[in-house]
């Protein structure tokens, strides 16, 4: 693959704290290699800002290999940017050409307040898990792992749902700021396994209640979440969630 350098214009959301109202600021960046990752371009820009005595742009990132779920930027209106099934940290600059202007914002949702610049507070996701996103088994209680065979397709489907990285792009992509794809991935992961069966009903009821309490919006089945998800979590999980919820509502005492 041919490498090239480019000059770009970035329009970045700056907000000093939760209380600040925030604004876009424009930064030119020069000599960006097509081999850089998007976040490495931010590193270059931040080094320049620091040298010029300016405040660098705060953004969340950690593993930089697409699995920790920490990075979170809306790029030209798309959470995680233009590539399909991708996180910002894995987006590389060969996606852009010399002279491009790129607009970068934080996740926008009431349940994800901005802490600084592009950094948001996603602790609401942890609280949804606390409401029931687990199997209640204390350490030491387990039987032999092969005592309970699980059909391969079910195990595979459960894994596909469990691949969610909890980044919140689904919420950022949704016009209603709904967390249904995130929640449905966890409900599916556990409902598809026999181990998850005893708590099936309470789990879905409690998790949905917590989601509503956190201020996430409702789902209108648009599918923007699935289209954006870096791990390609399927919309069919939301169908399963609705089914689980209905079943639990109808049969709970």
């Amino acid at each position: 693959m041919e490498h090239y350098n480019m000059n770009l214009t970035l329009k970045v959301w700056r907000q000093s704290s939760k209380q600040d109202s925030g604004r876009f600021e424009t930064y030119p960046v020069k000599n960006i290699s097509s081999e850089m990752s998007f976040l490495e371009m931010f590193d270059v820009l931040n080094e320049e800002l620091i040298r010029d005595g300016k405040d660098p742009i705060a953004f969340d990132h950690d593993c930089r290999e697409g699995i920790c779920g920490m990075c979170s930027m809306v790029i030209d209106g798309k959470p995680h940017g233009p590539w399909k099934a991708n996180t910002v940290c894995q987006l590389h600059m060969r996606a852009y050409n010399d002279g491009d202007t790129i607009v970068i914002e934080p996740w926008r949702a009431n349940a994800f307040p901005v802490l600084k610049d592009l950094v948001v507070d996603r602790s609401s996701f942890d609280r949804i898990i606390q409401a029931g996103g687990y199997i209640s088994v204390n350490t030491g209680n387990a039987v032999d792992a092969n005592a309970l065979p699980i059909e391969k397709d079910k195990a595979d489907a459960s894994f596909a749902a469990a691949a969610c990285i909890g980044c919140g792009a689904c919420v950022a992509a949704c016009k209603n700021s709904s967390a249904m794809l995130f929640l449905s991935a966890k409900v599916s992961h556990l409902a598809l396994l026999p181990q998850g069966s005893p708590e099936r009903k309470t789990r879905v009821m409690n998790m949905v209640a917590q989601m509503d309490k956190e201020g996430f919006g409702g789902c209108t089945n648009t599918g923007a979440c699935e289209a954006t998800c870096p791990k390609e979590i399927s919309l069919s999980n939301i169908a399963r969630l609705n089914q689980e919820y209905l079943l639990a509502s109808l049969t709970s005492e």
Partner: peptide
């Protein structure tokens, strides 16, 4: 060996064969 048992009990979806075993 206990670790694998514990993780399976928690719902860790390890790869499985067609017979349903790990």
């Amino acid at each position: 060996a206990n670790i694998i048992d514990q993780c399976v009990a928690q719902g860790v979806p390890f790869a499985r064969e067609y017979g349903g075993l790990l």
